[in-house]
Amino acid sequence: MKNARIRVLVAKPGLDGHDRGAKVIARALRDAGMEVIYTGLRQTPEQIVETAIQEDVNVIGLSILSGAHMYLFPKIMELLAEKEATDILVIAGGIIPNEDIAELKKVGIKEIFTPGTDTNKIVKFIKENIEITKT
């Protein structure tokens, strides 16, 4: 690929109204040379998955603070599978209790970044894991 860019959808599922964290991540990924599609607050799983497909992203980054991750994340993974789009790398961040992390990884979320994570670590993770999933 001559002119390829890593494309990332930064999405906020659910009903919480805070996107400062998502914006910080979006900015960090932009500065790492990625094209970041930011869709704003209160996205349904259907909106997130359809957007990811139309935008042909390599990565979906989910940010959530509402506590509804155990419902919303598996739903998103389910829809991705339905659309045969499981090649997209899905990562997440926000307020997610440790005891939920293993469960979320089981449904296919590749990594969970909790508050305080260095953004460089996220960039590095994407770059290292994208090769595997990139077609």
């Binding site: 990924l29 790492a32 040379g33 930011y38 869709t39 996205q43 909106q47």
Partner: peptide, 17 residues
């Protein structure tokens, strides 16, 4: 950096599905 924030969809949420 070649990176970008593509934010036009924020105003088009109802069209996504």
């Amino acid at each position: 950096t070649g990176g970008a924030i593509l934010g036009d969809r924020i105003r088009m949420q109802d069209l996504a599905t």
